[in-house]
Design a protein around this nucleic acid. Structure first.
Lengths: 133, 133
DNA sequence: ATAAACCCTACCACGATGGAAAGGTCAAGC
DNA sequence: GCTTGACCTTTCCATCGTGGTAGGGTTTAT
């Protein structure tokens, strides 16, 4: 299987497969005499794992750790859970930050009549110190 | 006022002030004979505006547009509101995406007993196709 | 006079991904 | 057998916002 087939089968672009190889996230594949990378079904499994972990927002570094645990039959599920919960905490922080932005901005936007006149609470809100929270 | 004072007064790092100048977000400041950038209170106002807009998650490109409107006494508040609402929609999309990740991951993590045993629904979830939603 | 604190420019780095350039390879059709 | 198109290869550059570092000049206070 060439890299394009592995890409289509896994949902990871050929570009990224090469990248993951170069940064050591996945092992170097075998090559044909012409230098084409060769992949097998198990490689596609691995790439799909990575793709799903990316879809859940794990960083490539975290995915490296997940892959180590995946490979390790003697792993403790506690280690996996710890990684996951750390990531959940990170997601929570990001959601909180974005939600706060959204709340503030929505308040400003609601106060803006949004017509042809120039006066605008949004610009005023940006130009003056936020109320002490 | 030197760049360090402007940075402290505005909450924008000196590094970023220089960067904003280079990308054309703010005008080039006057310089002393030694080449030191000189700032005034109105520059600090401007930088604070940028800082608050960044805190609300606007991109530098969007901030450029906001600054144009801020400068324009003949602006229509509708233009500002449109920018803000586009950004709110963007925030919503990101919040939704992160929340979906969080939901999926939390479900997996809850199913994981998190002890010394190796079997782990989190890894299983990453290794097998997500259930068709 | 010297030291500390400041300023300057010009680089490089992150993280994950895409794009483009410039070239080699393979398979199908003529 | 040759051409064409689809594939593969590597290498470099770009994104976005920010931080760091190196190597140098300036100002201010002791």
């Amino acid at each position: 299987m060439n890299i394009g087939d592995a890409a289509r089968a896994s949902g990871v672009s050929a570009k990224m497969i090469r990248h993951y190889e170069r940064i050591g996230l996945i092992r170097t594949s075998s090559r044909t005499q012409a230098g084409y990378r060769q992949y097998h079904e198990r490689d596609v499994h691995l790439l799909r794992f990575i793709r799903r972990a990316r879809d859940l927002g794990f960083s490539l570094d975290q995915i490296g750790q997940l892959l180590s645990l995946w490979d390790d039959p003697g792993r403790a599920s506690a280690d996996v859970k710890r990684l996951a919960e750390a990531h959940i905490a990170d997601l929570d922080a990001r959601i909180t930050a974005l939600t706060e932005m959204r709340t503030t901005l929505t308040t400003l936007a609601q106060a803006c009549h949004g017509d042809h006149r120039p006066d605008c609470p949004i610009l005023q809100g940006l130009a003056t110190p936020p109320p002490a929270s």
